[in-house]
Design a protein around this nucleic acid. Structure first.
Length: 1075
RNA sequence: GGGCUCAUAGCUCAGUUGGCUAGAGCGCGUCGCUGAUAACGACGAGGUCCCAGGUUCGAGUCCUGGUGGGCCCA
């Protein structure tokens, strides 16, 4: 069967789609699984992708790694689970479904019907899971797509129930009252994990307010806040006991204010552009000055202010009634001289620090807002108004009542809801928590795994050390139903650990629930009896769970922990997980470790690989809203996925990656295309020659040096590949492969071209074919995990069906082993030296403007060492051909041809010696150049006598020039000297002309669309004597090179191609037609 | 304020346990090669390896401090 012709202008995306069809039709993936079934296992654990949108190119990075290591381990014969996961539950899905319906808040959902809403969330997750599956297939991601796990599955949800029950048995589950960030639109608390994603620069109205001190006439505390609405709930004011406070009179009032605060210049706490845009802040001193001037009356310690009582700014409201009784100054360590007035407004119902402090001092917490962020009834004319919009009115109100000192626009980083982008507010709420008293156990498990990069472990440990308790509840609809049933009568709560346990405990509603997934609203129908007080019915708490629970039970729920323990033991822990680094330390990595520690006191993975972000080509984060996001499908259609996969694999995982067309083109041009062209070269000649790779295979010792060199390098590449894949360092292998492909394409093939052109079969030609075939097929195997399409396409043409017993797909092959018999390190070393000498000779030609087409009579080489000498001897023929010289001579000492001259470096000597510089130059020129040169070479100073004075020149002040005369072009580097004879004889000149002519004819053949093997009749017409002479003298050479059967100097009738050219300025007409 | 991390050519980045003259690709300029190559090769310009100390025979690499960026925590 003949090789299929390969066009170097292949449409790679189209080729990839064809390969996808091939895999589909031949059930290539299933065959692979079958082949490895029952072998040693390699266990992978997938971090579920959020099934809420189509994939972007940033998802493709991690998924490429996942596929690459799967394919490698499959080639190593391992049995694998091939299970992909989808993350389905959570607020992000709810928000999208709400948007589709135009819902404004939770009331709309309730009105619509929770059951219908939840069903739609489920459907949305399924919809995008399906889309992502298709996209992943397009990426070449070989997974068992019929067996993906979904975090919304019953298996998964009940798994979390079991986990929570275990937590409860160890007394770690509790209900806590806390002030926490709350999204008024979503109507839910925001956990510590989610907080950071939502910080945005925000402008607020901040105010300075006067708190008049009770019992002291016209004396007041100066208090500052960025959230005026919280003043309604003020309970106390905090000072730092050992800080200095000034007593300052301004107008009719005397204020207490932190001394440092008073004098300090104040700056908006933002950086960069936003800092420039934000209005500048006045110091407190300046504020007072503007208000009519001030007078500093004295200085006291904070201590002296403690326990003073004061009148709050909203004491007239009913809502402040309780707080009113408690208004006093308390001492707090956290007060600073760098922010505000040094006296901090404390509202325990409106801030989490405040709340903790309030508890410490037994202060009441006044919570003024409902769950939508609106003021409650007892807050007078604020009642019903939203906290976001009241700042100005509050300022006006304060002014009317004469307690406002100043207001200003303040820009700071303030938390927003990471999903809906609304401003968050701090609210006092009841939530469910897992306490983290057992964090040491999690840290122990963390240390038991390998982290790549290594600092990942420190990062994780740092989080574990500092994190707060894990808030697991969310007052929403779509998600894990927290399995907590709480008795209204006695407050006792229980955690139910499984479906069967619930059935046993159910006293009502089981029939209604049966047949439904354990989600709201269905599961809420089930009531139990209180185990403590016997009350009935006891209902489930309304909350749903934190979605990171969903993604973290998977090492148990998907590997069979609950239903097939034996199998679970075979797959747990996973060998490998890989996810994007930023964020996951406090999300998936953390939750995964916590859950697994609770269950079995062990990390659920042996190795964790973290990678960076995919950014746009300006190194900025991709966002849909910014318009710089690139959809996966668009990129796959436009660029093809192999090139993307190579780009991902070639990159250091921990660094962020700039994704853009220019980068893609670079990867294609540097790696994919040279490889493809080498392959096309091979195939297109092998086709004509009907090469059969299985026939008359020559042993290694009968191959040429060049063959043995590339095969030796190939063995080394196999070693590198195996190590890199096994150690999850695929980028090391990629950069080695790029070098290998460069050597293959730009040296091996270039130097071997003529061996393929020969018309008769010979050992040499056979060796070339066999060698290149072996290199290409082995290389295919090595890089198949990275570029599965390209290699499949090559494999189908090079191997499948051509070699008996060869597997049907490149991906069914076993990973190659290096053949020690083919490794020849000495040869590789010599080739490396040789390439260096060649490059020097080319440099010599360039410098002397001697183009390579012009043959030269001789080249002389003084090698830098024995290896180089051997190299030049061994590869003499390549040297002659590559550099177009007639003879290469090796010399041990070329210095006899060299003239050394020295002169002064006027750039340095001029400024330093002034008018003596000229004399120094003359003195240097008349001195012994050889002696001075050797001094300079050794870095020693040079002493010379100038006008009777001894002057010592630094080596840098002397310039040494070497010359090998006008007849030689020279290049010298690190002990190697290369000389090229510049003298061009008549004969050489004519030969050069002939080569020029050949080049033009070849171009014409190409332009005329002749086949490689077509024979031609050729006509070369010129009036110029020298051109004619060259045609006469070198006609046979020209004819041979251009496959001309007839060569004439007269015009051809019906020429297929004609070209008018100038050679050395003289016109020549070329005509040709097929003979 | 604390933790982690990064800083090497105009840009994107390599640089093994400290060791020959610090490299590649892109871009720019010049020249060349080409019947595999939408390519390629050579040469050139472009570096205080962020700064300052220290350890060492020797530091881009190790240590300390600082500056600047990123992520996280408070």
């Amino acid at each position: 069967m003949a090789y299929e012709k390969v066009d170097s202008k292949t449409d790679f995306p189209a080729m990839e789609r064809e390969v996808l069809r091939f895999w589909e039709e031949t059930r290539a993936f299933e065959t692979l699984r079958e082949k490895n079934r029952g072998n040693t296992k390699w266990s992978f654990l997938d971090g579920p992708i959020t099934a809420n949108n189509p994939m972007g190119v940033h998802h493709a990075w991690g998924r490429t790694y996942k596929d690459v290591f799967h394919r490698y381990h499959a080639a190593k014969g391992h049995d694998m689970r091939y299970q992909n996961g989808f993350d389905c539950q959570g607020l992000w899905i709810e928000v999208e479904v709400e948007k589709e319906h135009g819902f404004a808040n939770k009331k709309d959902i309730e009105a619509y019907g929770v059951g219908k809403f939840v069903d739609e969330c489920k459907a949305r997750a399924q919809h995008y899971a399906d889309i992502q599956s298709e996209q992943s297939k397009r990426l070449g991601y070989w997974m068992d797509w019929s067996n993906s796990y979904y975090t919304m599955s019953e298996q998964n949800n009940y798994g979390i129930w079991a986990f929570l029950k275990k937590c409860h048995e160890e007394r770690h589950v509790y209900k806590g009252k806390d002030v926490m960030p709350w999204c008024p639109r979503c109507g839910t608390g925001i956990s510590q994990m989610e907080m950071n994603e939502g910080y945005r620069e925000t402008e607020h109205l901040s105010v300075f307010v006067r708190f008049p001190i009770v019992g002291r006439e016209n004396e007041a505390l100066l208090v500052w806040t960025t959230t005026p609405w919280t003043l309604t709930s003020n309970v106390a004011a905090a000072v730092k006991a050992d800080m200095k406070y000034l007593k300052v009179r301004c107008g009719e009032w005397t204020y207490y204010v932190g001394k440092g605060n008073f004098e300090a210049a104040r700056k908006q706490p933002v950086e960069g552009e936003s800092a420039k845009k934000a209005p500048s802040l006045m110091s407190i001193q300046a504020i007072f000055k503007n208000a009519g001037g001030f007078e500093v009356l004295g200085e006291v310690d904070g201590e002296a202010l403690v326990d003073l009582r004061y009148t709050g700014p909203f004491d007239h409201l009913d809502g402040a009634a309780e707080a009113k009784e408690h208004h006093r100054v308390i001492a707090w360590e956290m007060v600073t001289e760098s922010e505000g007035s040094g006296i901090v407004h404390i509202a325990p119902g409106c801030g989490s620090e405040d709340y903790r402090l309030g508890k410490e001092f037994s202060l009441p917490a006044v919570a003024p807002l409902d769950q939508m962020g609106n003021f409650l009834e007892p807050f007078g004319r604020l009642a019903g108004r939203n906290f976001v919009s009241v700042a100005n009115d509050i300022a006006d109100d304060l002014k009317e009542r004469g307690v406002l000192v100043a207001k200003e626009r303040y820009v700071h980083r303030y938390p927003h809801c990471w999903r809906c982008k609304e401003e968050l507010v701090y609210r006092l709420v009841d939530e469910w928590y897992i306490n983290m008293a057992w964090r040491d156990r999690i840290m122990q498990a963390t240390r038991g795994a390998q982290w790549i990069p290594e600092w990942g472990m420190d990062r994780e440990l740092d989080w574990l050390k500092n994190m707060g308790d894990w808030m697991i509840s969310k007052k929403r609809y779509w998600g894990l139903a927290l399995p907590i049933w709480e008795c209204d009568d006695c407050g006792h709560f229980e955690v139910i650990g499984s479906q069967s346990e619930l059935k046993e405990r159910a006293v009502a509603g089981w029939e209604e629930f049966e047949g439904h997934s354990p989600h709201r609203p269905w599961v809420d129908a089930v009531k139990i009896k209180c185990a403590k007080c016997g009350a009935t019915p006891v209902s489930r708490v309304k909350d749903v769970g934190n979605p990171w629970l969903d993604a973290s039970i998977v090492p148990f729920s998907t590997m069979g922990y609950f239903d097939n323990r034996e199998s679970w033991e075979e797959w747990f822990p996973a060998e490998f997980v890989v996810e994007a680094l930023p964020g996951q330390f406090r999300n998936w990595f953390y939750a995964l470790l916590a859950v697994s520690t609770m269950m079995v006191d062990k990390a659920p993975f042996k190795t964790l690989l973290g990678h960076g972000l995919v950014l746009d080509d300006q190194m900025e984060e991709m966002h849909k809203s910014k318009g710089n996001a690139i959809e996966f499908n668009a990129a796959a259609d436009k660029f093809g996925v192999d090139v993307m996969r190579w780009m991902y694999c070639n990159h250091s995982p921990e660094r962020n990656l700039a994704f853009g067309p220019a980068h893609i083109d670079e990867v294609r041009a540097k790696t994919i295309r040279p490889l493809w062209n080498t392959y096309a070269f091979f195939v297109n000649y092998a086709r004509l020659d009907e090469f059969d790779p299985t026939k008359d295979v020559l042993p290694i010792e009968r191959r040429t040096d060049l063959d043995r060199w590339i095969l030796s390098d190939l063995q080394k590449l196999i070693e590198v590949a195996d190590t890199a894949y096994a150690g999850f360092e695929v980028h090391h292998f990629c950069s080695r492969t790029e070098r290998f492909i460069d050597n293959l394409s730009n040296w091996y093939v270039r130097r071997s071209r003529r061996r393929f052109w020969k018309s008769e079969w010979s050992d040499d030609k056979r060796a070339a074919y066999q060698t290149l075939h072996e290199v290409l097929t082995t290389l295919c195997q090595l890089i198949a995990p990275i570029v599965p399409f390209l290699t499949e396409s090559m494999y189908q043409n090079l191997v499948a069906g051509r070699i008996e017993g060869a597997p049907a797909s490149v991906h069914h092959q076993s990973f190659p082993m290096p053949d020690p018999a083919k490794i020849d390190r000495a040869l590789s070393e010599r080739m490396e030296r040789f390439l260096r000498v060649v490059s020097m000779a080319r440099a010599a030609r360039t410098m002397s403007k001697l183009k390579v087409r012009q043959p030269l009579a001789e080249m002389r080489v003084q090698p830098a060492g024995d290896v180089e000498r051997l190299a030049v001897e061994q590869f003499n023929d390549h040297m002659l051909e590559e550099l177009n010289v007639k003879k290469v001579t090796i010399e041990s000492d070329l210095s006899s041809l060299c003239t050394i001259s020295v002169r002064s470096n006027m750039k340095l000597v001029g400024p330093k010696y002034g008018k003596d510089a000229g004399s120094i130059g003359k003195a240097l020129q008349s001195a012994d150049a050889d002696v001075i040169a050797s001094l300079v070479a050794s870095g020693s100073p040079v002493s010379i006598e100038v006008d009777g004075r001894a002057i010592e020149l630094e080596p840098s002040e002397v310039l040494v020039a070497k010359s090998y005369g006008d007849d030689w072009a020279a290049e010298e580097n690190a002990g190697t000297i290369v000389l090229l004879d510049k003298r061009i004889t008549k004969e050489l000149k004519l030969e050069g002309i002939a080569r020029d002519i050949v080049r033009f004819i070849q171009n014409l053949r190409k332009d005329t669309n002749l086949n490689l093997e077509d024979r031609i009749t050729l006509s070369l017409q010129s009036d110029d004597a020298e051109l004619s002479e060259a045609v006469d003298a070198c006609g046979a050479y020209i004819a041979r090179e251009t496959l001309a059967t007839d060569l004439t100097t007269t015009p051809i009738d019906g020429a297929a191609g004609r070209l008018d050219v100038k050679i050395n300025g003289k016109p020549l007409v070329i005509e040709l037609r097929c003979s």
